[in-house]
C-alpha cells in the first residue's frame, strides 16, 4: 500500500538496542533492531514474553531512551514524547485519570496544543463519537466497563490528531467479545484517520487480523525475527477474514515463528518485504 521506499518513513528504527542494569548484571531487552514503518501502515508486533516488544514501543513513544541507535519520526530523532504521536496503554485504569471526567481526560491530551476552548470541546465530541461513545463526556472512567474505558483511551489518543498511534497490548484486559469489537474499531479508525499504527500484542490471531504487516520478535535477547506482510485486503471481518485460507496460512506461519524462534535464527530475514 506504500510506494514510499524512497520517502522518509513515518517511523525509522535504526540499530536500536536497549539494556538495563540490574542487580544480577546487564540485561539486554532488545538488541540491534532496525525497522522502517511507512506512513499509513498498520503494523503489529508479536513475540513471546521478554522479547522486548513493549520496550520497543516505549522507545518509539519517547518514554524510554534507547541505549544505542536512534528512532526517527518523520526524519526527526525522538528524544521525548513527540507531537503528533499518541499512545494507548494496556492498563486503561492506570492511564486514564479517575479524578477527571472523560471530557477533561480528553481535553488534557490537547492541553499542550493551546487550542481555543471551543475547538477543544468540538474535538472531544468528535473523538468520542468516533469511538462510539458520544454521550460519555461527563462520566468518570470508573463508571464505565473496561471496554468502554479502553475506547475512551483510544479517543484520548485521537485528540492529538496523531500521525502515529502506538498501542501496547491494548485489549489484553478485556473479554473476547469486546475485544473483537475493539479490533474492528481500531482497523476502521486507522483507515479513517489515516494514522500509522503500531500495535503490540501477544495474541497471534489479533496480530494478523488487524495488520498490514506483522513484526515477529524473538526473546533472549529481544530481536527482530521476521517481518511478514499481511495481504488480506483493507476490509476485515471477524467471520470472513478468519475463514480466509490466507489468514490461516499467515496465522500458522506467525505461530511457528513465535513458538519456535530457535528454528529461524539462522535464516536471514530481510527487513523489507
Amino acid at each position: 500500500m506504500n510506494d514510499g521506499a524512497t520517502a522518509v518513513p513515518a517511523l525509522d528504527v535504526a540499530g536500536v538496542s536497549k539494556a538495563y542494569d540490574t542487580a544480577s548484571g546487564r540485561r539486554i531487552a532488545l538488541s540491534e533492531t532496525s525497522v522502517r514503518i511507512e506512513a499509513g501502515e498498520f503494523v503489529s508486533v508479536v513475540g513471546p514474553s521478554g522479547c522486548g516488544k513493549s520496550t520497543l514501543l516505549m522507545m518509539m513513544a519517547g518514554l524510554l531512551a534507547p541505549s544505542e541507535g536512534e528512532i526517527r519520526l518523520d526524519g526527526r530523532p525522538i528524544d521525548g514524547p513527540p507531537p503528533g504521536l499518541a499512545v494507548v496503554f494496556q492498563d486503561y485504569s492506570r492511564s486514564l485519570f479517575p479524578w477527571m471526567s472523560v471530557r477533561r481526560n480528553l481535553a488534557l491530551a490537547a492541553a499542550s496544543d493551546k487550542l481555543p476552548k471551543e475547538e477543544v470541546a468540538r474535538r472531544v465530541q468528535h473523538c468520542l463519537t468516533a469511538v462510539g461513545l458520544p454521550d460519555a463526556a461527563d462520566l468518570r472512567p470508573y463508571q464505565m466497563s473496561g471496554g468502554m474505558q479502553q475506547r475512551v483511551a483510544i479517543a484520548r489518543a485521537l485528540m492529538v490528531q496523531p500521525q502515529v498511534m502506538l498501542m501496547d497490548e491494548p485489549f489484553a484486559a478485556v473479554d473476547a467479545q469486546t475485544r473483537a469489537d475493539l479490533e474492528d474499531l481500531v482497523v476502521r479508525l486507522g483507515q479513517e484517520f489515516g494514522a500509522t499504527i503500531v500495535f503490540v500484542t501477544h495474541d497471534i490471531d489479533e496480530a494478523v487480523y488487524v495488520a498490514d504487516r506483522v513484526l515477529v520478535l524473538a526473546a533472549g535477547p529481544g530481536r527482530l525475527a521476521a517481518d511478514i506482510p499481511v495481504d488480506l485486503g483493507s476490509r476485515r471481518d471477524q467471520v470472513e477474514t478468519k475463514l480466509d485460507p490466507e489468514f490461516a496460512r499467515l496465522r500458522s506461519e506467525v505461530f511457528q515463528l513465535v513458538m519456535r524462534p530457535r528454528a529461524i535464527v539462522d535464516v536471514p530475514v530481510s527487513a523489507s518485504a
Binding site: 516505549m58 513513544a61 518514554l63 514524547p81 507531537p83 499518541a86 499512545v87 496503554f89 492498563d91 492506570r94 492511564s95 486514564l96 485519570f97 488534557l108 491530551a109 492541553a111 499542550s112 484520548r156 492529538v160
Partner: peptide, 10 residues
C-alpha cells in the same frame, strides 16, 4: 503508569 500516561500527553 499514571506518570507515563501524563508524559505521553506531553
Amino acid at each position: 503508569s499514571w506518570v507515563r500516561s501524563g508524559r505521553s500527553l506531553r
